[in-house]
Design a protein around this nucleic acid. Structure first.
Lengths: 130, 130, 130, 130
DNA sequence: GTGGTCTAGACCACC
DNA sequence: GTGGTCTAGACCACA
C-alpha cells in the first residue's frame, strides 16, 4: 500500500490520506482485518506530522473504515465497511449534485457522464479481483 | 431564482452561492444573458456580506459562468458556458474518484451509482425543458 | 473613422474611446485640424452616455490630442500632437516595464518582443501612408 | 527583495505589488522555489492591509507565478512560470497597441521605441546574470 | 503561525 | 447605483 501525498495540492494532507486509504480498501489492496501502520510509523513513512496522521485515522474511524485499538493498533474494519444506507446515498447525492450541474452547463451528455463514472468504477473493480 | 444558504454547513457560504447559481443555470432558471442581482442586493436578500457575494461572483466569472460589468452589473454569460474539454473531464474525474471509491467500499453496485447519477442528471434536465 | 466599443470589456468605455481616437490619429485616419463629431453626436453614434464621451474628450484635450472650442467644436490638434519629450518617454517606459518583466518571466526573447513591437508599429505605419 | 508602494498612484496597491514581485522574478532576485513573506509579514513590512497582500498573492497564483500552501506559506513557482504561448502574446500585443499608437502620434521612430524596449529588457537581463 | 473565510464600513471610478 | 479597492478585526482549519 503506497501512500502518495501531493504537498502542492490545496486538498488538506489528512484528507488525501483518508481518501487514499479508502481507495486502497476499494481496490482490495487493504483487506478487512488487515493492520495499518501505527500513527508514528505512517507519519515517518510519508514524512508528515503525527497529528496529521492521527486526524486522518480519527476520521476513518468515525466513518467506520477502521478500528483503533489502544493495544492492537489500527486495523481495517474486520466487519467490512457498513453497507450504503439511505443516509449515505443522500450524502453521496449531495456531493454529486454540483459536479453534475456544472457538467450539464458544459453540455456533457448523460451518457458521457455515465461513461466517466463507469471508467472510474471499473478502475477499482479490476484490482479488486486480484 | 431562490438562493438558500446553510449557515451551519462547513461548506463556505460563497461556495454554496457559486454552486446554487451553477445549478440555476443547469436547470435553465437562469438563462444566458439574464441579469443577476447586484452584489449588494444579493447580499441583502440572503443576509450575508457584500464581499462574500463578490467573492462568489468573482469565482463564477473566473470559471466563465458570468460576466461582470463595472457599472451595469452581472449577467449570465451570453455566450453560454464553455463546453467540457479534456481538462474539465480530467478535473471532474478527480472529483468523482473518492466518491466512487467510498461507494465501492460500501458495496454500492455500478448500476445503483448510475441510477443515482441519472436521477440527479434528469432532475436538471426536466426543468430545462420547461 | 469607426469607433467600436466592447461593452463586455473591463476597460472603461471612455478609455476605449480615447485609445481608438489616438489609434485613428496614428493611422492617419484622423488628420490634424479634422473635426470630430460633437459630444452629443458621438454619444448617439456609438450608443453611449454623453458624459462618457465628454470624459474621453477632456482626457484627449488634457493630453493635447484635440482642441475643444466652445463654438467651433472639437478638432484634432492642428499643430499636431506634441513630440515625445523626456517626460513622455519616462511615462512610456513605466508602462512598458511590467509588460516586459512578465515577458522575461515567460521566456520571451528580446528578439521576439522586438518582432511583436515592430509588427504593431507597422500596422499603423502602412495605413499612415495612404 | 524590496517592495516600494506608491500610495499616491492611481494604480491599485495590490497591482503594484503583483508587478514588483513579477519584476523580482524577472530580475532573478526571486528564484523558483524561494519563499515569499507571509501575507501578514508582507502587509506589515510595507504598511498595508493583510487582505490587500492576499489579493496580490491570489492574482499571482492565478497567473502561475507562485504557489500558495495553506500552512507552509507562499513560494515562487518551482516549475518556473509557464512559457509564453499564443494566447499570452495576443494579450501582450493588446497591451502594447495603445502605447505604440500614442508613440507614433508623438513621432517616436520605430528605432527609438526598440531602443527603449531593449534598454528595459536588458535592465532585467543584466541582473539575472548576477 | 499559515492562509481561508466572513463581517463591517469606507471611499472611489464609471456611467 | 454599479462594482473595485482598501482597511480593520474576527474566527477557523491545517500542520
Amino acid at each position: 500500500m503506497f501512500i502518495e501525498i501531493n504537498f502542492e495540492s490545496n486538498k488538506p494532507i489528512y484528507t488525501q490520506l483518508v481518501e487514499q486509504i479508502i481507495a486502497g480498501i476499494a481496490k482490495g489492496d487493504l483487506q478487512a482485518g488487515e493492520r495499518l501502520p501505527s500513527v508514528r510509523n505512517m507519519a515517518e513513512d510519508i514524512g508528515i506530522n503525527m497529528h496529521t496522521v492521527n486526524k486522518a485515522y480519527q476520521e476513518l474511524r468515525d466513518r467506520s473504515f477502521i478500528l483503533i485499538h489502544r493495544q492492537r493498533g489500527v486495523v481495517i474494519n474486520p466487519q467490512g465497511v457498513p453497507k450504503a444506507d439511505e443516509k449515505y446515498i443522500s450524502i453521496l447525492s449531495e456531493q454529486f449534485h454540483p459536479l453534475i450541474a456544472e457538467s450539464i452547463c458544459r453540455h456533457l451528455s448523460k451518457d458521457k457522464i455515465q461513461k466517466i463514472v463507469t471508467k472510474i468504477y471499473e478502475s477499482y473493480q479490476t484490482k479488486e479481483g486480484e
